[in-house]
């Protein structure tokens, strides 16, 4: 099962890369964009068909390595199983 993980800096933490990109967008005339936050996108393949199991493994991977929970949040996105 392919699982997507999105890692972002916590809201309380200044994001210099996002801020610099926001300034550049403003300079290009994107006046409607009010903020930019830059994070990471990680795709992992897990040898299971069980969404609960996949979430459990992905959570452990985020906690132990993929995210630094002192400054980052992570979101785990499982494939849409509705169809």
């Amino acid at each position: 099962m392919q699982v997507d993980i999105v890692i972002t800096l916590r809201e309380s933490i200044l994001d210099p890369k996002g801020k610099a990109s926001h300034h550049a967008l403003e300079n290009l005339g994107f006046s409607d964009i009010s903020s930019v936050r830059i994070g990471k996108f990680i795709q992992i393949d897990i040898d299971t068909d069980d969404p609960a199991k996949a979430r459990e493994i992905a959570t452990e991977a985020c906690e132990k390595l993929l995210a630094n929970t002192v400054m980052e949040n992570y979101e785990i996105r499982l494939p849409d199983t509705a169809s």
């Binding site: 933490i13 210099p16 630094n68 002192v70 400054m71």
Partner: peptide, 16 residues
């Protein structure tokens, strides 16, 4: 810091 032998974390320099 990553090994948690010291507390806190490091971010990109303010001026990038």
């Amino acid at each position: 810091l990553e090994a948690r032998l010291l507390p806190g974390t490091m971010m990109a320099n303010e001026q990038l």
